[in-house]
Simulated scan of single mutants.
Amino acid sequence: MFHLLDGSSVQAPFMSTTNKQYISSTDNLKILKLPYHQGGDKRQFSMYILLPEAQDGLWGLAKMLSTEPGFIENHIPTEKVQVGQFKLPKFKISFGLEVSNLLKGLGLQLPFNTEADLSKMVDSPATQNLYISSVCHKSSVEVNEEGTEAAAATSVEVAFRSLPQKIDFVADHPFLFLIREDINGVVLFVGHVVNPLLSS
């Protein structure tokens, strides 16, 4: 069962594992780190699941995340630990936005009108007739048994070493998630799951 913010519950598909995980735990927050497989890329991407202890603690956690500098950096799991009970709901979230008007409002006007010069971007005799008609942004995050996928990124590969302490991580109520590049600390995606059945 996944407990909703209004006090009701829904039955949702969960994943579980007995493998060791990167988890940090405080009195009111647990954070799970799922590192992405690096391949040949030197950047280090990870998904973080931020689970408040209180079933209705999502908005308080969101406020801390947005107002306390260094909040993520101070709570990142650094050790792999043995898990006791581990449950994470499957979810998929997509978001799309047409951002042309936003860019124009920020002062980026020239590429959108017929006087645009895109000759250095496009090698074609027709460049004099080209201009940008729209800019769209789309992102997608999916978590399932095979790992996590973000905007057609890559799946999670996990390797672990043992620690004596076992920590439970049961994400059976609303939580935040984010995808971060760990070397420079840039957050690429941030979102929340309040009902995994409403994933789109």
Rank of each mutant, 00 (worst) to 15 (best):
L163T: 06
L106P: 00
F45E: 08
I93F: 03
G96S: 07
V81R: 06
N129V: 12
K120C: 11
V170P: 01
L103G: 01
V156L: 15
E157P: 04
K63G: 06
L163Q: 11
F71K: 09
K80C: 08
N28C: 10
A12P: 06
A159I: 15
T127F: 12
F112W: 01
P196Y: 05
V193N: 04
K20V: 14
F95W: 14
S94A: 13
G60S: 10
V170F: 03
D172V: 07
E142I: 14
P77E: 05
T78W: 04
I183S: 13
S66K: 10
S25P: 00
F71T: 07
Y22T: 01
Q11E: 12
D182V: 10
Q55M: 10
T127Q: 03
Y48P: 07
E181G: 09
T127H: 14
V158Q: 13
G70C: 08
A62C: 04
K33W: 01
V99K: 00
V143H: 00
P196V: 06
L51C: 00
L106D: 08
Q109L: 15
E53C: 06
G7P: 03
N113M: 11
K166N: 08
S133W: 05
G40Y: 14
I76Y: 09
V190C: 11
I23G: 01
H3S: 07
F177M: 08
M15N: 05
F2H: 04
D56I: 11
P196R: 09
I31Y: 05
S25G: 00
R180G: 02
D56N: 04
Y131S: 13
Q11M: 15
D6W: 05
Y48C: 02
Y48S: 02
M64L: 14
T154L: 15
L61F: 08
N101K: 04
M121N: 13
F189N: 08
D117L: 09
G96K: 04
K30W: 02
T114G: 13
P69M: 12
G107Y: 03
G40A: 14
P89N: 04
Q55Y: 11
G39A: 07
L65H: 04
L110Y: 11
S25F: 03
L108I: 13
K90C: 09
P52F: 06
K120V: 13
F71H: 03
T18Y: 06
N101R: 12
F86K: 06
L110T: 13
F91S: 02
L88H: 02
G107C: 01
S25H: 01
S94T: 13
F91Q: 06
G107F: 02
K120L: 15
A126E: 14
V186R: 11
S100T: 15
A171T: 08
V81A: 02
G40N: 15
T78R: 10
A62D: 05
S162F: 12
L102Q: 07
K20R: 15
A116V: 02
G147V: 05
F95H: 14
N28G: 07
F112H: 03
I49L: 00
L51P: 03
K80I: 05
A171R: 01
L50P: 00
P77V: 07
D168Q: 03
